[in-house]
Structures are given as C-alpha cells and as structure tokens.
Amino acid sequence: MLQKKVCMLGAFAVGKTSLVRRYVDSIFSEKYTTTIGVKIDKKVVNIGEQELSLLLWDVYGEDNHQKVLPAYLRGMAGYLLVVDPTRPNTYKSALSLHDLVNNTLGPKPFVLVLNKSDLKDEWEADIAELQQLANVAVAVMETSAKTDSGVNEMFEALASALLPING
C-alpha cells in the first residue's frame, strides 16, 4: 500500500492534536495538552478505489520560544497548515512555516485549515492576511475538531492531492 508522510503544522494551541485525535480515534477533549517533539499516528484512507496509508506527524506548535526544526519535515509528502482564526497571531506562524517548508523541501501540497469553526463568532475578520497562502493551497477548509465538522474532508482533500496522477 502506498504510504505518505503528512505533517500537522501551525502555531501552538491551534488544535493540531485535536484534529488528529478526532480523525484517528473519533474523540475530542476540551483540555489543552501541549505536544513536545512529535506524535506519530497512522490512518488508512480510501480515495475512490485507491487506498493510501497516511503517516500523521503531529509536530509541536511554534511559539515565542521554539521554532519547528527542519529535521521533522524530512520525507514529508504534504501538510496541513492549521490556524486558529480567533487568534490572529497564529497567521504569522502559518506564513513562516510555509516558508520553512519551501526553503527546506521545496513546494509541497498543503491544505490551509481554519480550525475552531464552532467559535466562528469570535473569528477575527481579517482573513485577507491569509490570502497569499489560500492562493497556493490545494484547498482551504473550515474545521472543528469539537463538532467533527470538515475533519474527514480536510484529510481527504490532502490525500487526494498526494495520490499519483491526483487519483
């Protein structure tokens, strides 16, 4: 079976781990638990008649004290770039992580993920800041790990882009 490494990238506390837990284990917790280093999970996804094994690398979030090290990206086929629109600071991390990928591996397919859609009333209006990322993403998805909205679709959108001849 075809195997692809997919990284979850984004600032701290944007919900990367919650999205993986929701997708892999169908669970959600309100409690925030930070990730150190990386957590690795696996999930097989069917896209049409093709089966693909996604190796999910949930990489620690960037914060004021630590940046993501390029070694964690090694062998990555694509990534989910997660932002929390209730925290505009997380946009800056998304832009710098996108640059890190391009500078380390060259362009790779990614889905821009606007997480916490259950808190849409609190989203900051200026999503235009993310337009340059949206223009080069394979998809822009609104998700909520809490309500399970858009989670499967987000992973499937990236998986489709990773298949040979695009499925």
């Binding site: 280093g37 990386v38 964690y72």
Partner: peptide, 17 residues
C-alpha cells in the same frame, strides 16, 4: 522508512512520541 535514505549528516528527532 519515510526518513530514509540517510545522507552524510546524522538526522536527530528528539521527543518522538
């Protein structure tokens, strides 16, 4: 397997859960 092949420089990934 996704990290291979290893080049001339060692690859170090700390705190892998």
């Amino acid at each position: 397997a996704q990290l291979l092949p290893i080049g001339e420089k060692a690859v170090v990934l700390v705190n892998t859960q």
